[in-house]
Design a protein around this nucleic acid. Structure first.
Lengths: 143, 143
DNA sequence: ACTGAAATTGAATGTGATTTTCAATTTCAC
DNA sequence: GTGAAATTGAAAATCACATTCAATTTCAGT
């Protein structure tokens, strides 16, 4: 509950694409939205399983792919190679704490414009980018 | 041949770590160094196989890991998730052409310093970063 | 509410890159 | 040359995720 906007957004996507509204999809959307973000498929699976013990891994992966297609989520891969799903919003980049695993989002127009310079230098047409800073967050540095 | 510096560097690493000097390791180093860079394990395997038909996948992967530990190579993962090995050198970032797969290295001090600003803002200690621009290279845009 | 065609589900199985296992082989210090 | 320790390679395991397919569920049309 309390994610009415996204629920409606999913419902619209399903209707427009002749797809069906199921308990599983609703449950997975709910878990995904309630997470702090950057949750893995495995974590979603475990949490959905609590309320829907019969749900399968397959459905979780398929539904997350659906949510990505619907524009509600986007899939990210950090250095461990495991897919993580974040709530879709404005372009941004990430700080990843290698100790506690915390992922912080940031945006920086200075970097964006620097990229334009690089692209021009190599006559390259940039479609997207990924920029990740790996290190230690402040709370992991407090002894 | 003609990669004497690296051969000596590997030899030194092997000695220091009580590891052994083998034909396979030499052959893999040779193929790796002769590549244009950003070669996959599979590609190394195929090329080494030409001169050493009995070599196994396993040895290639193990040896590339060794070369990384020895500081001669570094492993990179781009969006396709497949490990690529590049010749270790100064820090740099990458432009990746999503059409032809070409990988161009670049460095940009403007971006590096912008990162410091971000790190300070979040009180984050950056250990390393990855910055990849995906798009179309100039030759892929020529119709 | 009822029906049935189409979509969905989930268990089992497949996939693909890489890793591990392990018996046989090779290296190298003595 | 000898033998202990490292290395090799074939086969099997792993790990995250994708595909298959028979059984179930949804929902538009009645």
């Amino acid at each position: 509950m309390s994610h009415e906007v996204e629920q409606r957004s999913l419902a619209r996507y399903l209707e427009e694409h002749n797809l069906k509204h199921t308990k599983q999809r609703e449950a997975i959307l709910e878990v995904f939205l309630s997470a702090t973000g950057h949750i893995t498929g495995e974590e979603i699976y475990r949490q959905v399983k609590e309320k829907h013990p019969n749900i399968g891994y397959t459905t979780v992966y398929r539904t997350m792919k659906l949510l990505c297609d619907a524009g509600l989520s986007s899939e990210r891969h950090f250095d461990d190679g495991i897919a993580r799903y974040e709530i879709a919003h404005e372009h941004h980049d990430h700080l990843v704490c290698v100790r506690c695993g915390k992922i912080i989002e940031f945006e920086c127009s200075m970097i964006e414009s620097a990229q334009d310079v690089i692209a021009a230098r190599y006559d390259f047409r940039v479609l997207r980018h990924r920029h990740e800073l790996y290190g230690h967050c402040s709370s992991c540095r407090e002894d």
